[in-house]
Simulated scan of single mutants.
Amino acid sequence: MPPILGTLRRLVLTPKLRAVTFAHRGFPGAGSPAAEHLELIPQSVICGFEWGIEQRSLWDVERRLETVAPEQRGFAYEGAAMAYTVRDAMAGGRGLKPSSKARELLLGPGRPHIFLTYIGIGFAMARLPRVLWKTVLPDLDGSPYHPTMSWLAVDGYGFDRAYFDTRKIVDEQREIEPYPWAGAPEYFPRAVDQGIGRALWFINGALPDLVAKAVNAFPAHRRADLWSGVGLAATFAGGASAVGLVEVRAAAGEHAAEVALGAVFAIKARSYAGYVPEHTELGAELLAGLPLGAAVALANSTAVDANAAGPGGSPAYELWRERIRDHFRPVAKAA
């Protein structure tokens, strides 16, 4: 039985399941055939958050998370990571100490879902003042993807802002003030846009024409990162038929390589978690033009050292993305 304090945290902090439905949020994709499937994802996040914010022990949280269907389980872990990050902040910002709850989750039962649990940290960031952001990322030296993939926390922050503040972030395309995440404030807006691109897939109900229209409403310099987010969401979350995925790749036009990049990252994350649904295999084939194994091999073969830097001093995360992106860019023909 959870303690009274845990029950109070749950009652005060846990969003209602209805609050994330597309109809409640007024999303244009509310009536799409994929809406019900896609709504299960934020609802799974809320379930994970509710368990993480209420239960006293990680063992109790893990037992609940493992009851979630494999396709949605990573999203529930995402919610638990969000909850544990908030709890660390409420306890006085112990996020960088070895005893932090977020660290125990990410290096423990959440390890296979490391890509999504980073995103959960970003969801917490959207609810915490910026002064606390310097404490939200736990020390994960035991993970091969830390700190390179910690930029997914910024991606998660961008997704959350677009999903819950749609008018400002999507309709008005307001840019978010940079933050020196991992010492690279100039890259922060790009990682935010990658998350916004993922949110556009949900907001528009996986309808290719609406998604493309939404992306193209943004300034041209932001569209590449938005399209990579679309490719990641379409492949990881699903929601589109084979015909729809072909339409997405065509609509991306000059940014088709960005869509493929997002698809490869999604495939890597699904494979690492140990469960690859059919729609992810389909995304590999139709958005990246690769069979599943080849897509995973591409992600693995292009991985970078955490201390590496990309062009212009961009973080190792972007260097990894660039290497994958280069695979899909057409080779210039000799004169």
Rank of each mutant, 00 (worst) to 15 (best):
Arg198Lys: 13
Arg190His: 15
Ile203Tyr: 07
Glu186Ile: 04
Val215Asp: 11
Asp193Trp: 05
Val192Leu: 07
Leu207Asn: 10
Ala182Trp: 05
Pro219Leu: 14
Gln194His: 15
Phe218Tyr: 15
Asn204Trp: 08
Trp181His: 11
Arg223Ser: 14
Pro180Ile: 04
Phe202Arg: 12
Trp181Lys: 08
Glu175Gly: 03
Arg223Tyr: 14
Ile176Gln: 01
Glu175Ile: 00
Glu177His: 04
Ala214His: 10
His221Gln: 15
Ile203Leu: 12
Val192Phe: 03
Gln194Val: 13
Leu207Trp: 13
Asn204Gly: 05
Ala220Thr: 12
Pro189Asp: 02
Asp193Thr: 08
Ala182Thr: 03
Ala214Phe: 09
Ile196Cys: 06
Asp209Asn: 04
Asn204Asp: 08
Ala214Leu: 13
Gly197Lys: 11
Tyr187Leu: 08
Tyr187Thr: 13
Val211Arg: 01
Val192Gly: 03
Arg190Ile: 10
Gln194Trp: 07
Phe188Cys: 14
Pro185Tyr: 06
Pro219Gly: 09
Gln173Val: 07
Lys213Cys: 05
Ala199Ser: 15
Asn216Gly: 05
Glu172His: 04
Gly205Thr: 02
Trp201Glu: 12
Asn204Val: 06
Pro208Arg: 00
Val215Thr: 05
Gly195His: 13
Ala184Pro: 03
Gln194Leu: 15
Ile176Leu: 04
Arg222Lys: 10
Tyr179Met: 02
